[in-house]
C-alpha cells in the first residue's frame, strides 16, 4: 500500500458551487429543481448533502460530475469550470455500475486502461485496491457473482483507481440492507482515512451522514435550497462506538428535526389523508371516511 498513486494530494480537490439554479422543463411547465445553492468541499474534506427525496441533491451531484449543466450559476473544481465528466472526479453511483462483462479486477483497471497505463502496472494497482476493499480473492469473479455490498466496494475502489481529486458518491449504499450498510460505512471511512481525498456524499440517511462527514449540508424540499450547514465535531478516525456518544445522538436529533419538516413538506402534495393532520399538515379535502 506504499504505492505513489495511493497517496493523493490533499492540497487539491476543492469543489465550489456558486449560486446554482436548475430548472427542468420547457416554458409553461417549468419545475425549479434547485435554487440558489452555494456550497463547497475543502481539499480532503468529507461533506454530505442530505435532504428529502426529490430535493435535487442528485441533480447537484450530476452537475459536479459533469453529466449536466446548471441553468444558472457554476460549479468549479480547483478553480476550473466543470463542463464534462472526467477521471479527476471519481463517481460512485447508487445503482451498481460495474461492467458485467469484465472481471472484478478488469473493472478496477478500467480507468487506468483508458488512461493508457500499461497492463502490469494496472494489474498491480488494481490488486492493491482490491486488497484494500478485502476482495482480492474475488479478482477473477464476474460482478454478477457478487453481493450488492461487494459490488459497491468494488465501485468505490474502481473510482479511486485513477487517483481522482474528488470522490462523488450518489447514495452509494441506498440499495443495501441495513446491516450491510453499516459495515459499508465503516469500510468507507477506513478507506477515506487512507486516501484523504475530498468527498461529496449524497444521502438521505441521517446517521450515515454524521458518521462519515466533516460537514453536512441540509437541503430543503423542492425547490432545493441549502437549509442548514452543520459541522460534525467528532474526532477522526471514526469508529462505530462513536454512534453511541451523546454528541452523536444530539447531532442526530438536530438533523432529524431539520429533515422531518422538509420530508413532510416534500410529501405534502401527495398527501390527501386526514390521518396526517396530526403532523400539523395542511391536508386535502377528502378524509378516509369520505372515501369508504
Amino acid at each position: 500500500m506504499s504505492m505513489t498513486m495511493m497517496e493523493s494530494d490533499t492540497r487539491r480537490g476543492f469543489i465550489d458551487v456558486r449560486d446554482m439554479g436548475v430548472t427542468f422543463g420547457a416554458n409553461g411547465s417549468q419545475v425549479i429543481a434547485v435554487e440558489n445553492v452555494s456550497l463547497n468541499v475543502q481539499p480532503g474534506e468529507f461533506v454530505s448533502l442530505i435532504g428529502p427525496s426529490g430535493c435535487g441533491k442528485s441533480t447537484l451531484l450530476s452537475i459536479v460530475a459533469g453529466f449536466m449543466k446548471p441553468t444558472r450559476g457554476a460549479a468549479t473544481l480547483d478553480g476550473k469550470a466543470i463542463t464534462k465528466p472526467g477521471s479527476d472526479r471519481g463517481v460512485v453511483f447508487q445503482q451498481y455500475s460495474l461492467f458485467p462483462w469484465l472481471s472484478v479486477r478488469k473493472n478496477v483497471e478500467f480507468g487506468l486502461k483508458m488512461a493508457g497505463v500499461e497492463q502490469s502496472k494496472r494489474n498491480t494497482t488494481a490488486r492493491a485496491l482490491l486488497d484494500l476493499a478485502g476482495l482480492l480473492s474475488f479478482e477473477n469473479h464476474y460482478p454478477d457473482q457478487l453481493s450488492g455490498g461487494m459490488k459497491q466496494r468494488i465501485g468505490i475502489v474502481r473510482a479511486l483507481a485513477t487517483s481522482p481529486q474528488v470522490l462523488l458518491m450518489d447514495e452509494p449504499f441506498g440499495a443495501l440492507d441495513t446491516q450491510t450498510r453499516v459495515v459499508m460505512q465503516e469500510i468507507l471511512t477506513n478507506i477515506w482515512q487512507q486516501f484523504r481525498i475530498s468527498v461529496l456524499f449524497i444521502t438521505h440517511d441521517i446517521e450515515e451522514s454524521i458518521f462519515l462527514s466533516d460537514r453536512i449540508y441540509v437541503m430543503t424540499a423542492r425547490p432545493g435550497r441549502i437549509k442548514a450547514e452543520i459541522k460534525v465535531p467528532l474526532p477522526r478516525p471514526r469508529t462505530a462506538e462513536m454512534t453511541d456518544t451523546p454528541e452523536f445522538m444530539n447531532l442526530v436529533q438536530e438533523l432529524k428535526g431539520l429533515i422531518r419538516e422538509e420530508a413532510l413538506a416534500a410529501m405534502a402534495p401527495e398527501i390527501k389523508d386526514r390521518g396526517l393532520a396530526g403532523f400539523g399538515m395542511k391536508v386535502g379535502p377528502k378524509g378516509v371516511g369520505e372515501i369508504f
Binding site: A65, G66, F67, K84, P85, G86, S87, R89, G90, V91, F93, Q95, S97, F99, F110, G111, M114, A115, R158, A159, T162
Partner: peptide
C-alpha cells in the same frame, strides 16, 4: 449508468 461510469473513468 454504465455509459456514465465509462465517461467518469475517463473513456
Amino acid at each position: 449508468v454504465l455509459v456514465r461510469a465509462g465517461r467518469c473513468l475517463g473513456a
